[in-house]
Design a protein around this nucleic acid. Sequence first.
DNA 1: CAAAACAGTTAAATTTTTTAACTGTTAATG
DNA 2: CATTAACAGTTAAAAAATTTAACTGTTTTG
Lengths: 277, 277
Amino acid sequence: MIKDYNDLKWDAIQRMEEVERCLFWQGSLGRTELALRLRMSNPQTTAILKQYQQLNPGKIGLNNSSKRYEVNDSVKNLFYTPSLSDLDSHSDTFEIDSYAMSAPSRRTPMDVVRNVARTIYQNKSIDIFYHSHNEPNGKRRRITPHTFVTTTRRTHIRAWCHESKGFRDFIVGRISETGTQSEPGQTLMSDEAWHTLLILKLKPNPKLDSAQKKLIEMDFEVQEGVREIKVKQALLWYYFELYNLWPEHQIQDPKHQPVILGNIDIMAFLNKVPTKK
Amino acid sequence: MIKDYNDLKWDAIQRMEEVERCLFWQGSLGRTELALRLRMSNPQTTAILKQYQQLNPGKIGLNNSSKRYEVNDSVKNLFYTPSLSDLDSHSDTFEIDSYAMSAPSRRTPMDVVRNVARTIYQNKSIDIFYHSHNEPNGKRRRITPHTFVTTTRRTHIRAWCHESKGFRDFIVGRISETGTQSEPGQTLMSDEAWHTLLILKLKPNPKLDSAQKKLIEMDFEVQEGVREIKVKQALLWYYFELYNLWPEHQIQDPKHQPVILGNIDIMAFLNKVPTKK
DNA sequence: CAAAACAGTTAAATTTTTTAACTGTTAATG
DNA sequence: CATTAACAGTTAAAAAATTTAACTGTTTTG
């Protein structure tokens, strides 16, 4: 009768995930509440909760006083990995408000995303009309995309550019049109700057006093004065942009530049492969 | 036999959502593929696809040549709302790579998130140990949180602060401990700065040449020279931070400040209510 | 102390899903 | 150019999941 995690069918896994989702955000879950959420009858809901208890013993227990199942956070989740973006998409069903600041500079036209995604899925290339810094009015290009890259500022597409014969990043919001698909160029495998990992070292800005430094060390999880981050060479430029790391900006107010570059030599990699300058 | 959207049970809705998810990202979906994804038998999978066709006529059609169902993008989705964060959480099952840049300054300890979420859910207040700019070593406070706010830089909690007797923003990553819950203070309703909407006006940086301006206008969806954004007064500061809008920074390279403030008078609201300075 | 609000239970009826053995179509293969 | 492989689609009986309807038991509330 006790089933293994792997014996469950897809439907059952979805339900178990929903159970854990409720438990994580609410801390407790009533049977009637679950029956309403899953639109199921009471006997079946009871069965599901029993099944959950067998699969993940000790995670939940009925509190006779509140008449609700209460969660034991020291037992790990089996089905649900919590994240804030998940709260965003489910906050309407919980009574927990969640608000994402809208930022127009990051607009991501979903029809472009869709057509590029399908190009990746089919291992093809695609015609795009792209507005770059050098050609703001736009130019037709053919690219073989391999990965969507979400930086803190915008969404990019990492792709082989058939025009410039190299791997480049394309900002999704600057693609105004997508065209027909055709045979691919170079693929993920040969994107060296993508596969090269560098160590980026960050230090608190020395202009901060020691108490403020501690705060920054907390924010950045600094260990022994330096925070080391493994960074794809292809994305190095965006880390400079994010943390405002260019040495010529170090004159700035440390409020706008809480960390500075710990290994200047890494800047050599910024231009080595023409990623984006 | 033809069922209405509302007649479907929870399980069925989840499945339909999965069907639309596959269709959106892949553009096509095979019956055998769907059977594997849903871990269902072939006859049942056929039934589900038929049911989908009845619910959303014209959305999919079998291509006899590829022997796969192909999507008609001009017919709207009924169950699935696409987003890039959704691709992130499902990209392992599609052959579409997706990579999110890690940014240590945004760390969000999920145990803190969890305990605060449950406090909101239960309409209570909670003790936290908070490291602010003025008190980097941390101080115990009691807050009544009402909303999670995701800005482009980090996750905040909007809350009534029992110590300073006002609504404040707390950076999740700067909460080092959460304590016991108790009775709430002021709630969402009385947070004026949260409910006050302002119009923020953005213009392309005049130092840009006209071609570059066009590009920025595309990025920001500028209409007739100005982009207007409705902004909660409580979040105004973060827009200044995001777009680097402080007038004293206007000397900067327009690469780092693509847009400037269109309505200087709005700055009065930055300090009016002590949100964060 | 009675009522309300829950969780939990049972057994028969109903619905969904699987199993196993089929047909039909298209593209690729020798 | 016939054969095969790879798919979608079908059927009917068997099995499994779910609902319905009528219950019991416990704790808090008024």
